[in-house]
């Protein structure tokens, strides 16, 4: 059995950093682990997906539809776009912000603001305004670490392990800020 985590967002939001922290956690805990990322053109503001799987033996590097234990979404619409990757009753951590895609900005489509309402019975949905919290912590850019802190409440990993891996993964100048962001997300 493996734990399957999926991180979705908008290109440029830092899904890669978050998946690499989760990969570091898995290694630290002695698991087999695989991560899958999207590079190239998809990074230019498009919808991006990264996968993290860990357990005793991990085969494929992707999380498929119906198999995610945790879906971490850095944006509301992206949470809805990938909801069906969650297992029934899975945990959906949503950074409850709206980033309008170009199709909405240009008027070709409308942003469905109530998009998550219909999903509330199916999953354990946790909404957080991480951008606001991150700004209060010191820099809006660490919103993804705030979200990770919220996700950590639903994962069985010791706080010390998280902090150690964060320290080893984020740029050296941002270690303290990221730790603070994480702990705030964790609720400490």
């Amino acid at each position: 059995m493996s734990t399957n985590i999926m991180i979705v967002g908008v290109g440029g939001q830092g899904t890669l950093l978050t998946s690499r922290i989760l990969g570091g956690i898995a290694i630290e805990k002695g698991y087999d682990v695989k991560l899958s990322e999207v590079h190239g053109m998809a990074q230019r503001g498009g919808s991006v997906v990264t996968f993290v799987r860990y357990g005793d033996c991990v085969r494929e590097p992707i999380v498929e539809e119906g198999q995610a234990d945790v879906l971490i979404a850095f944006e509301r619409l992206e949470a809805a776009r990938y909801h069906h990757f969650l297992k029934p009753g899975g945990v959906m951590i949503v950074n409850d912000v709206v980033i309008e895609p170009i199709t909405v900005i240009s008027g070709a489509a409308a942003y469905p603001t109530d998009v998550l309402d219909s999903l509330s019975g199916k999953y354990n949905i946790v909404k957080v305004d991480a951008n606001k919290i991150a700004a209060e912590v010191g820099n809006q850019r660490v919103f993804n670490t705030v979200v990770l802190g919220v996700a950590a409440r639903h994962m069985d990993v010791e706080k010390e392990v998280w902090l150690k891996v964060i320290e080893n993964t984020v740029p050296p100048k941002t270690v303290e800020l990221n730790k603070k962001a994480f702990l705030t997300g964790l609720g400490e």
């Binding site: 498929e64 776009r81 069906h84 170009i102 909405v104 998009v115």
Partner: peptide, 27 residues
């Protein structure tokens, strides 16, 4: 793996994606 399950075992045990969501292409 899901594609294989569907083609070989005829199994599709997950929900369909939400219809009508605005696309988010790279820009």
């Amino acid at each position: 793996a899901n594609m294989l399950r569907k083609a070989v075992l005829g199994k599709q045990e997950y929900e369909a994606p939400m219809a009508g969501l605005p696309a988010r292409p790279p820009v």
